[in-house]
């Protein structure tokens, strides 16, 4: 096993991690500020991917596709927030789960209705289609490197937004005490819609970016959604920093586990059983990581401690 291969896999893990972060950041913001568990977040990811594939396919421009993904996901987010989600903020978690599960059904079947069951394909923009050579003689796809950069840029932007701007202060205050900031004259309904649209746009962005390296199809959002839940359980609900650390941990564990566990098992097992056992264990690795965090810190690495 060469150093180059290890470096490539670490980059792959990072790329997967930052894309998970885009999903997890929206989910954790929405939960932190509104107290809402949103299963339909994966549908917004799917909406973004389909919008990007449709617009990029029609115009030939990847950038227009990205713009369409952001706009469509944010618009879908605002629409469901005003029609459905708004009525759920004070409801029990069970009602939130059920209503957002219903939204998944509607979004998935609605998309299948419009676009059909066959996957769409979104092409990587020509400027980023080749490999780049990194120091140390590593050849790495430029597009994946751009994904890492985009993810890190969004993380920095989110940090700036929440820590340095007026809206960010309102968002953090809303998470702490919604009555108080309403009393201070902040339009809480508009703030909630804004936060939901922001989370939706991040999900749509992730869907469009990942859609170019995978196929765009109905049901693509839910596996990512569940991984984002694992990220949040590890990082702590409501914490963007926790979501970032958790996303990188999950991305790296999943990618590196899939490559190295079978190799590790080959050291003391027959090759074919080692591949079997290694890949079975690798498919469970992130959940084992999550269990360990649950035992160690039931509210996640950066979650609020119960008093």
């Amino acid at each position: 096993m060469s150093a180059i291969l290890i470096a490539e896999q670490v980059l792959n893990g990072l790329q997967f991690g930052v894309m998970l972060f885009l999903m997890a950041a929206g989910l954790t913001l929405i939960f932190g500020v509104m107290g809402l568990i949103n299963l339909a977040h994966g549908s917004l990811y799917m909406v973004g991917a389909f919008a990007a594939a449709a617009v990029a396919g029609a115009t030939g421009s990847f950038v227009l596709g990205l713009g369409a993904a952001l706009a469509a996901a944010a618009a879908a987010g605002v629409l469901i927030e005003m029609l459905v989600i708004r009525r759920l903020y004070r409801a029990a978690h069970l009602d939130q789960v059920l209503a957002t599960f219903a939204l998944i059904l509607i979004f998935s079947e609605g998309t299948r209705w419009v676009f059909g069951s066959f996957p769409l394909y979104l092409d990587i923009p020509a400027a980023l289609s080749g490999p780049v050579s990194l120091p140390g003689g590593i050849l790495y796809p430029a597009y994946r490197l751009a994904l890492i950069a985009a993810g890190l840029a969004v993380a920095a932007g989110l940090w700036w937004l929440t820590a340095r701007t007026r809206v960010g202060i309102q968002i953090r205050a809303g998470a702490d005490d919604r009555e108080m900031i309403a009393a201070l004259g902040v339009d809480i309904r508009r703030l909630y819609t804004l936060v939901f649209a922001l989370g939706a746009a991040l999900a749509g962005l992730a869907g469009a970016l990942v859609g170019a390296i995978q196929s765009v199809q109905v049901g693509m959002g839910e596996p990512v959604l569940i991984l984002a839940f694992v990220v949040i359980v590890i990082g702590g609900i409501g914490s963007i920093k926790g979501a970032f650390i958790g996303a990188l941990l999950v991305g790296l564990t999943d990618t590196l586990g899939g490559i190295f566990l079978p190799e590790l098992f080959k050291l003391f097992m027959a090759p074919d059983t080692a591949t079997q056992a290694g890949s079975a264990l690798a498919s469970m690795a992130i959940y084992i990581l999550m269990s360990a965090v649950l035992i160690w810190r039931p509210t996640g690495l950066y979650g609020a401690r119960p008093a």
Partner: peptide, 22 residues
């Protein structure tokens, strides 16, 4: 059950997915 509320929902969902992939 060390957790409650939303953590419990997410964690049970995640364990389900673990068995699915297994």
């Amino acid at each position: 059950l060390r957790t409650s509320g939303v953590y419990f929902i997410m964690a049970t969902l995640a364990f389900g997915q673990m068995f699915y992939y297994f």
